[in-house]
C-alpha cells in the first residue's frame, strides 16, 4: 500500500518527528511504499544540516536523511514554511542573496502542491504533529 507521511513539528521539542520516523521505518519493513514524507510548519527544521545533538542522543535530521537514502524516499521540505524559518538550500540561498545554506543532503525543498499531490497519489495520508 502507498503511504504519504506529513511531519508538522521540528526535531527534539516534540515527539512527532520521532513517531513519524518509527512509523515510516515500520511501514517500509512491512513492504509498504512511502510516496513522500512532507515536512511542514516547524517540521522543516528536521532538514537542517547544522544540528549538533549530544553524542549519546539520536541525530534526528541525519536519521531521516539516512532512512531516505537507504530507501530512496522523497523527503520534501515546504518552501514557504522553510523560508520563514531560515531553512534554505543552496539554490534558494543564492536566489535570496544569503551567504549560507543549511539543508541536509537527501532532503529537497519544494512547494505545498507536493503535499496535495502526495495525498492524491497515496492510499493513506498520515499526519504527525502537535
Amino acid at each position: 500500500m502507498k503511504f504519504a507521511i506529513v511531519v508538522n513539528e521540528g526535531p527534539y521539542t516534540h515527539q512527532a518527528s520521532d513517531t513519524a520516523f518509527q512509523f515510516t521505518r515500520a511501514a517500509l519493513a512491512k513492504g509498504h511504499e512511502i510516496v513522500r514524507v512532507f515536512f511542514y510548519h516547524d517540521g522543516v527544521n528536521n532538514g537542517t544540516k547544522l544540528a549538533v545533538p549530544p553524542q549519546d542522543d539520536r541525530h534526528i535530521p541525519n536519521n531521516w536523511a539516512k532512512l531516505g537514502k537507504d530507501n530512496q524516499l522523497d523527503l520534501v521540505l515546504c518552501i514557504a514554511a522553510a523560508q520563514r524559518r531560515g531553512i534554505l538550500d543552496e539554490k534558494e540561498a543564492k536566489r535570496q542573496g544569503k551567504d549560507a545554506s543549511n539543508v541536509i543532503d537527501g532532503f529537497r525543498i519544494s512547494g505545498l502542491g507536493q503535499l496535495i499531490e502526495a495525498g492524491i497519489e497515496a492510499d493513506r495520508t498520515v499526519t504527525f504533529g502537535d
Binding site: 502542491g113 503535499l115 496535495i116 492524491i120
Partner: peptide, 19 residues
C-alpha cells in the same frame, strides 16, 4: 500559533488541484 494560517495556505494552494 501559526497552524491556522499555514493550514489556510495549504487550502489555497490545494484549490488548484481540482479535488
Amino acid at each position: 500559533t501559526i497552524y491556522a494560517l499555514e493550514s489556510l495556505e495549504v487550502v489555497l494552494i490545494g484549490a488548484a488541484f481540482d479535488q
